[in-house]
Design a protein around this nucleic acid. Structure first.
Lengths: 140, 140
DNA sequence: TTTTTAAATGCAATTGATTGGCATTTATCC
DNA sequence: GGATAAATGCCAATCAATTGCATTTAAAAA
C-alpha cells in the first residue's frame, strides 16, 4: 500500500482509502477493467462506496496520468488500466474479450508475425491518431 | 437516389425511404456522423422519424456492410460512415473534432510525414487489433 | 392488380453507463 | 487540535442505445 500512497503523493493527490484500493485493484489485475468491474471488486473491501465515487476517482487518476482509459471498438463502456510508461497496443479477442498487451508498435505487415508469435489471428484493426490539425494549431 | 436503391437491392434490404435518405446523408457528408447527427439531418426531410428507427437502420446497414461504425477514444457515442472498400485510418483533431481520412496504413515513424503532408500534429495514437486468440481458435 | 406476409417503423418505456447537485466527511496544512 | 479545501455519499438526472408491441409497408404471391 506504501507504493500506491507514494504514487498519489507524487501526483499531488490526497491519499484516500478509496484511491489506494482502486490503485491496488488495477495493479493486481494488470488488465483493462470497466468502472463496474472495479466497483465490484472494491465493494468486497469497502462495502458502501457508490459507483459515482469510483468514476470520480478514475477521473482524477486519469487526469494525473496514473491511469489510462480506452474505448474499445463496439464496447460501450470505458475501460481503465494503470498507465504504462511506454505506450502499448493491444490484441483484443473477439470471442473471449481478453486483452493482450504488446510492446511492438505494429503495422499491417506485422499481422503475420502476430500470428506466429502470439497465435493471434487478426481479423481487423483500427489505428487512430489524435492531435491538432493545421487550422487549430494556427488559431492558438 | 437510384444509386442508393441499388445498394440496398444488392444487400437484399428493402428499399425504404428512411434507408435511402440515411444513405444519402452519409454519402453527402462523407465523414463520421453520430446517430444523433444523422437524425437531425433526417428530420429536415422526414420530420417524424424517431431516433430508434435511425439506430435500427444503421444497424441493418452496418450488418450488410454498407456502413461502418467506430468508437473514437474519449467520445462515448458510436460514429458512422459509409463503408469504404479499402480500409482507412483517421486523423482526429482534439480541438475541432474533425476527422480526416488517410489512405496510408501508418506507423509511429509516419508521424513526421503526417505533419509535413497534412499539417497535422499528432499528440497520441491508438492502434488496436481485433481477431481471435490462440485458445479461442482451437475451441471452435 | 389485389392479397398476403414478413420485415420495417412509430411510439413509449427501459436499460446501462456516466454525470451532477448538494450536504457531509476527511486529509492535509497551520 | 482547528481551519479549509478537497473528496465522498447519496440520489436524481442525463445521455446514448435498446426493446416490446401495435401498426404500417415493401415485396412476393396469387
Amino acid at each position: 500500500m506504501k507504493r500506491y500512497a507514494q504514487w498519489l503523493e507524487d501526483a499531488n493527490l490526497k491519499k484516500t482509502e478509496t484511491r489506494l484500493k482502486i490503485l491496488q485493484i488495477l495493479d493486481q489485475e494488470h488488465a483493462f477493467l470497466s468502472a463496474d468491474d472495479i466497483h465490484q471488486r472494491l465493494l468486497k473491501e469497502l462495502p458502501k462506496v457508490p459507483i459515482s465515487t469510483v468514476y470520480r476517482v478514475l477521473e482524477a487518476l486519469t487526469q494525473h496520468a496514473l491511469v489510462s482509459s480506452v474505448n474499445v471498438d463496439h464496447k460501450k463502456e470505458m475501460l481503465f488500466e494503470l498507465a504504462h510508461e511506454h505506450h502499448a497496443h493491444h490484441l483484443i479477442c473477439l470471442t473471449c474479450h481478453q486483452v493482450i498487451h504488446i510492446e511492438e508498435c505494429p503495422v499491417e505487415s506485422l499481422e503475420r508475425s502476430m500470428l506466429t508469435k502470439y497465435g493471434f489471428k487478426i481479423e481487423s484493426h483500427s489505428l487512430e491518431f489524435y492531435g491538432h490539425c493545421k487550422t487549430c494549431q494556427e488559431h492558438r
